[in-house]
Simulated scan of single mutants.
Amino acid sequence: MGSNGRKVRGAGWYRSILHPGEVYRNSEVYRSVVRHPKPDTPRGRAMTSFQNFFLHIYPVKVPREIIRTRTTLRLGFIAAVLYGILFISGTYLMFFYRPTVPDAYFDMHTLSTSVAFGQFVRNVHRWSAHLMVVIVILHLLRVFYSGAYRPPRQFNWVIGVGLLVLTLLMSFTGYLLPWDQLAYWAITVGTNIAGYVPLFGTHSRNLMLGGTEVGSAALLRFYVLHIYFIPALITVILSIHIWRVRKDGFAVSDRRPEPEDEPVKEMADAEA
């Protein structure tokens, strides 16, 4: 009896060395963190998706057709990846930028010439922003022409249009931050156009600029909008957008294969 117990304990010690992951998954610590069964059965995979904080917004099952590139062109996924790249690169650029009139231009020059990987990160941030605008527009066009906005996905279509508007605002507010001649006159022209909107055009222009012309107040407001306010809105609305995709289902799941035409049987000539 004692020898058998020693063999069992020895086998457990030997298994803990060769298979540490298995031992950890069978421990009380792992079961207190991961409260779903092992995802090796349909029920286990479903419980993994339902009870995981990061996975519960995704569908448990996905139609085979939806994972094909020709169906969605992966445009939504590409837009989300570009947003992540913008977040990471923008965070790096924030360490070397001060949103004040005397310092903004020189900080950008220093970033391009003296900071390690500064010019590279700035170019990645810039081109990712341009590409994200194009990808989001293409994504909405794909949804529109494929009819994926139809019931019950009308609300998610409205959310997608809102994300497009926020993406354009994100690009517009970031245009002023380099504080060079191109940025100054581009924002001047853009805000002047906004000022011609009936009823509230002048008030909205003054609200954006913090006055009647592009200056230090406008630079600070555009910086706050570009760094904090608009990214927070995009993050929240994008999460709702992904969650609604799961709740509303995929557009391709509504399609049904068209029945094949039955062969037409020609009637024989009665006189033949």
Rank of each mutant, 00 (worst) to 15 (best):
R205F: 07
Q154K: 07
M47A: 10
N156G: 05
H125D: 06
F155W: 14
Q181D: 15
S3R: 15
H56Q: 06
P99L: 10
A217D: 15
Y14C: 13
H226E: 02
K61P: 06
F200V: 11
E258F: 07
V136N: 02
L111D: 05
A104D: 00
T235G: 08
F96E: 03
S89G: 08
I193S: 09
T91P: 05
P42G: 05
W179D: 00
E213Y: 10
D261T: 07
T91I: 11
I78T: 15
D248F: 05
G174K: 01
H241G: 10
G190I: 00
H109F: 09
Y97R: 06
T188L: 07
T235V: 11
S16D: 13
G2D: 11
R221A: 01
H203P: 07
I237R: 05
K247G: 05
Q181W: 14
F250Q: 14
D269E: 13
V62T: 09
F120L: 14
F144W: 15
A183W: 02
G147P: 09
N52Y: 00
V165P: 01
L209K: 01
V115C: 07
A79M: 00
T41N: 07
F54M: 01
R31H: 11
E262F: 13
I137G: 15
G190D: 00
F50M: 09
P257G: 04
L86H: 03
H203S: 14
D103T: 11
R98S: 12
G90L: 06
R244I: 03
Q119C: 12
S112Q: 14
V81Y: 10
D40Q: 12
I240K: 04
G21F: 12
Y105H: 15
T235Q: 08
A268Q: 11
Y24S: 08
V245D: 02
L75H: 04
G44D: 10
L176M: 09
L219V: 03
L111K: 00
I85D: 06
S27R: 00
F77G: 15
A46I: 03
L75F: 14
V236K: 02
L164T: 04
A251G: 08
V121F: 11
R98V: 14
E65K: 09
G21C: 14
P39F: 04
N156W: 03
E28D: 14
Y105F: 15
R122M: 06
R68T: 10
M208Q: 02
S253T: 04
K61M: 10
H56K: 05
M267I: 12
R15T: 14
P39C: 04
N52R: 03
Y223L: 06
H241A: 08
A148Q: 12
Y145G: 08
P99E: 08
S216G: 14
A272G: 08
G44R: 03
A104K: 00
M170Y: 13
A186W: 05
